[in-house]
Simulated assay, not measured.
Amino acid sequence: MARHRDTDVAIECVDLSIARASARGGDLARVVDGVSARLPHAGALAVLGPTGAGKSSLAAVLAGAEEPGLAVVGGDAWVEGIPVRKPGRAHRLHTYVTGYLAQGDGSRLPSRLTVEEVISSPITRRSRRADKRALAIRVAALLDEMKLPLGIAVKYPYELSAGMRQRVAFARAVMLQPRVLIADDLLANLDLSAREAVLAAIRRRRDAYGMSTLLVGNDRDSVEALNARVLVLRAGHVVAVGESAADVTWTPSGEADHRLIAS
């Protein structure tokens, strides 16, 4: 189903800088410095780079995640027209239109909730009056799409394999049919069949209603499967951009290092 768009692009970053407080508190340290990027509707952008480059911090801010110690300290960014720096009352809308799969989400699923309750949580957190039968049908459809047995709906996360938990986390991220999916380490712990199920689910939503996808990590398979444009970070700075992982242009200040995109 087509959706109305209020902006020209799904995500726009303009000289965005992000800082994180140390575990002991004190001064903020910049983890993302002066990033500018655009993600069009129905497009895909992959943010690549080494560990510590600032990729996950960038993803968390763009997803509207409330992470202690993480703050925008320069520039700005908009997700579906909503500013991430000071969204105010629009924060609730921001998290509604954005599906977020954080790094390690599959291993952090709530142990006291069943799989059905986990996947349904984006709706049940917002409304206690949700139709339980409609939710059950929606969960069953997502489990089938993820090539997971319907019987696991009543199981708990600790009863599942790592690959199953990752797919449950993905199903939760797309439960609300988001306009933008931000996925950090999307294909973690997945075998080839499960990877294709997840990638096919993204392509299906892109074609059906123009969902945009921001990928974070260094998995070339997902970059190529989704025809994603590439942005490479190193120490919080953009050092390369390209139409694909095989075709990047390095910035004058960034020494070419193809190991950063060779995973």
Rank of each mutant, 00 (worst) to 15 (best):
R172N: 07
H91K: 14
A53N: 11
G236C: 03
F170V: 12
L70R: 07
G64W: 11
L190D: 01
V139Y: 09
H94V: 08
A194T: 02
V216M: 05
V168M: 03
V168N: 03
D6V: 06
A134H: 07
Q103E: 15
G69A: 11
R30V: 13
D247R: 14
I11V: 15
E159F: 00
L45E: 10
P110D: 01
D191T: 08
G75T: 10
P68Q: 07
I202L: 12
T124F: 05
V31M: 06
G52H: 14
G88E: 09
A77E: 09
S36M: 11
T51A: 12
H4Y: 04
G43D: 03
L101Y: 08
H258L: 12
S107I: 02
I119F: 10
R85V: 15
A90G: 02
R112V: 08
L148M: 08
R30D: 11
R165N: 03
L93T: 11
H237V: 15
E159Y: 01
A228R: 06
D184E: 07
R234D: 14
G74P: 14
D131M: 06
L135D: 05
E116G: 01
V35G: 03
Q103P: 13
L109C: 06
A46Q: 05
G69R: 06
S36L: 11
G88W: 10
P110L: 03
I11E: 02
L48P: 03
V174K: 05
A153L: 06
V139S: 07
E145T: 12
G26R: 04
I82Q: 02
A65I: 12
R205D: 09
H41F: 09
M164G: 05
I152Q: 00
S121C: 10
G75W: 12
I119Y: 04
R129G: 06
T95Q: 05
A23L: 12
